[in-house]
Write a protein that binds this DNA or RNA. Structure first.
Lengths: 338, 338
DNA sequence: CTGAAAGCGCTAACAG
DNA sequence: CTGTTAGCGCTTTCAG
């Protein structure tokens, strides 16, 4: 029992395939009479267009791929949750790929000749790829990069101003009277550009307040998960001179740090104030709730899709654009108390 | 600058398209000599097969779609994270769709004539759809259903034994000496079948221990989010006779309940013990850590993909199968203390 | 406004 | 083992 095709419909309606196509896609104007005939035939046969064939004929797949390092990281799942409806609204289906932050995997996705011609464009949140890696890529692939990279002029980049946001976060800690402030999450190597921007903000806030940074309070972590925060915080507490506040490079890190503090019988924020980054849902329900920098995820998702659609629609490669989404500081219990 | 096609390769190599196709797909045996010629040509031209055309020609898309109600719910994002690699290993790309639990959206996805012929099969985690709704579906779509439905014989179902798992959870509360046990999350209406299974377990555990259920301690919630748990717990605390333990129908609900308890100055588990369901990562890092029922997500993902691949590969619709994945009780601080 | 016909790029039956 | 060729189902140019 074969699927019914456009040709079948045409026959039953007594018109040409061309006309059916017109009706289905609303292209050319069609007489009301023929339109109705065709629609009746479509209904009768239960016809549904074969997307594969359509795609082949017009050379586009109607799919975009969203590539993130991890799907079970709240920040990315929340972002994806926002991207999918935006893409659907623009008429695209969303393929999802996760890279585990693996550099080889990531570069195979954007690299020259990598594309399977299976998607029309890509929204990419790199992790293992350095800025330089990103530049060696298939120039024909419409690409929007998310996160903390910078556009090299061949793709769009959507992100918040990390340095400014980090500065605000640390300024907030200073404002509530903290002076020995630690940072958890630095990554002083090529693929750690994201982290380094946060560290820049950390320093900037100190400078602005006339404070000097205690370099030994900047703790590196391989990733931004709870366990990283928990471990780093434990190390800080082992010292003779623990900090009175910590700027964590993600809310998960913050959550891990809080966990360690409470387990050691310390109070948050009385003994140690904590601020995170990302504004994931968790942070709003823990105890204490976690102060954070909240990027406007909805805006990021909408902008990314909008730019990508624009790039996919253009015959010439568009010049890359740097786009800043909004962010704001949200003070919660972990800094301002109960 | 057109993409190079298989025909171009054939010309350059001086062979027929058929041979190139054979080389690319490793179908028929090809002489080493010609193979090498073809491969050289492929490399020289930077040829890459057009997946769209291939798909059209062999009538399959090489894509499966995974449909979940919400992507930012940790349980689903963790599950998806496990499904994607499993699918990729089986040679499939993963499309993702989220329904917001909307019944119309869900039924439009599985309903008769709904398929866009864009994916070869579907892994579906329904929420708004009742068991009956599920039965009115496109019989040609290979389908594996996740969660708490039951196979009607036309699709596979992979899930844990919810009644048994819930019984264990509540038995655990009884075992640690609790007698006034509440349940948060019941949904006594057609689309609430998932919840009802948990309630069945709740009752079963009471019966097994010779306890009677206080019906007023079974609290309904519209969804399984933190806010639902927080609200329901607040209502329980308003009563003159609050419970000494609560079985929450998800870890998020449990987390919300804990939040409310702590905010009221109560201790967990000393005053009220809490157990959740799903074993999401959060539960391992809060304070207290949350006891839970842990479904084997890896096994669920692998089994679902494996069964789906089997269904997609079979010409005849296979009979539906009911598959039970493993689960286990994980006691943590929220029941057994620190 | 509608019909005829030529592809889109690949696969696979059917020769040879 | 390899070439020829007819589609897969739809879009779209070019006539009419």
């Amino acid at each position: 029992m074969r699927e019914t095709t456009l040709r079948d419909v045409a026959e039953l309606a007594g018109v040409s395939p061309r006309t059916v196509s017109n009706v289905v896609n609303g292209y050319a104007r069609v007489t009301d009479a023929t339109r109705e005939k065709v629609e009746r035939a479509i209904a009768e046969l239960g016809y549904r267009p074969n997307v594969l064939a359509r795609n082949l004929a017009n050379g586009r797949s109607g799919q975009i791929v969203v590539v993130v390092p991890y799907l079970d990281t709240p920040y990315f799942s929340e972002l994806l949750q926002a991207i999918i409806p935006a893409a659907r609204e623009a008429g695209y289906n969303v393929l999802v790929d996760q890279t585990d932050g693996d550099r080889a995997h990531e570069s195979s996705l954007v690299g020259r000749g990598a594309r399977q011609l299976l998607f029309d464009g890509m929204i990419f949140s790199p992790l293992g790829l350095s800025q330089d890696d990103l530049s060696v890529r298939d120039p024909a692939l419409p690409l929007v990069v998310l996160g903390e990279r910078t556009s090299d002029g061949t793709f769009d980049h959507v992100g918040i101003d990390d340095v400014a946001a980090s500065t605000e976060a640390v300024a907030h800690l200073i404002e509530i009277g903290r002076r020995r402030i630690a940072a958890i999450g630095d990554q002083p190597y090529p693929t750690g550009e994201a982290a380094q921007l946060r560290t820049r903000g950390f320093r900037a806030a100190h400078a602005a307040a006339g404070l000097t940074v205690d370099e030994s309070l900047i703790i590196g972590t391989a990733r931004f998960n709870r366990i990283d925060g928990a471990t780093a915080m434990a190390a800080l507490l082992d010292r003779s001179d623990p900090p009175d506040a910590v700027f964590c490079y993600s809310d998960l890190v913050a959550s891990g740090a809080v966990h360690t503090l409470l387990a050691h019988g310390l109070r948050v924020p009385e003994d140690v104030a904590i601020i995170g980054y990302d504004d994931i849902e968790d942070g709003r329900y823990g105890r204490p709730t976690i102060s954070t920098i909240s990027p406007d995820k909805g805006a990021i998702a909408r902008t990314a899709v909008e730019r990508l659609v624009m790039r996919m629609g253009s015959a010439e490669p568009l010049p890359g654009k740097e786009i800043r989404a909004a962010h704001r500081l949200i003070p919660r219990q972990s800094t301002i108390g109960f």
